[in-house]
Write a protein that binds this DNA or RNA. Structure first.
Lengths: 148, 148
DNA sequence: CATCATGTCTATCGATATAGTCGAGAAGTA
DNA sequence: TACTTCTCGACTATATCGATAGACATGATG
């Protein structure tokens, strides 16, 4: 399960993707649009900036800007930055010998790797550009039932 | 990331799979073979018993027995019992409206479901019988480097 | 029946992570 | 100057995790 913080980070980057190339977006605006506690979001955006994903400006007309194009920025990059390595168990995320006394003969290792590959495969092939498309498509398909 | 407890549970069931049909296995024996703190394992095995996965006998010659054949028992069943539903976020594990103000138009929903399907796909198609085979195979391939 | 070996139950504990808040300050803009 | 916005560091409450402890129940054995 991804942490709430990580989900907020993804939603924030997604929101900034919408305004890519259109000037800075204020924290309050992102918080409102994505339903994120503002003071918490401040912390998160500052981290993402330090990670090189965002730029910022202060003062009125200030706000945050996405550095790279949503078309090339993947969900996996953000998740790894916020959460650390992706994977179901420590044996396959970093130093494998770490405590696993059963390594490398462990019967579960193959399964863990299959899960890891499957998950990382999805996250690393999904860009924020893709997500923008998804949302546009969903909005297009959505037919409000105003008709009786 | 799966909890330590869940990994212990899987290793314990795996260990019991080895003795399926061959009488009860003591807690201490499982704990030793799989490197699990015994008092913690007691708690875990008791839960698995309550879940209907194991049977037990007390006294000397006592211990735990796997109820179903390793060939039909999947890893997914154990994980769900110990951890609850499988999935990267709450939106796709149970009641979806739970707080997600953006549901059902959420741009991430499709991705979450792809991840969930991929993960559950692996866990639900891996039986403890498969794991026994993996281990046997790994043991066969393992060539200790005694040769100079 | 006494005894020993084993599982069973309930409670507790310390450490860590999570989710979030707060106040003061720095840097832009008008 | 005054206002707006980001920035920084500290802080806190709560929950969960991983694990342990003690008392008890039950079965086998002699």
């Amino acid at each position: 399960m991804l942490s709430q913080k990580c989900q907020y980070a993804l939603r924030a980057v997604f929101e900034l993707s919408k305004s890519y190339g259109a000037g800075p977006v204020k924290i309050g605006s992102v918080a409102g649009a994505q339903d994120i506690p503002q003071r918490f979001l401040e912390v998160i955006l500052a981290e993402l900036k330090r990670g090189g994903f965002l730029e910022s400006r202060r003062g009125s007309d200030g706000g945050y800007t996405l550095v790279r194009s949503p078309q090339t920025l993947t969900v996996g990059e953000i998740i790894r930055f916020v959460e650390g390595p992706i994977g179901p168990v420590e044996c396959v995320t970093g130093k494998p010998a770490d405590g696993c006394r059963l390594y490398p003969g462990c019967a579960f290792l193959g399964m863990w790797r299959r899960v890891q590959d499957a998950v990382a495969g999805v996250y690393d092939t999904t860009t924020f550009g893709d997500l923008l498309e998804s949302e546009a498509k969903a909005a297009g398909e959505f037919v409000p039932s105003y008709a009786i």
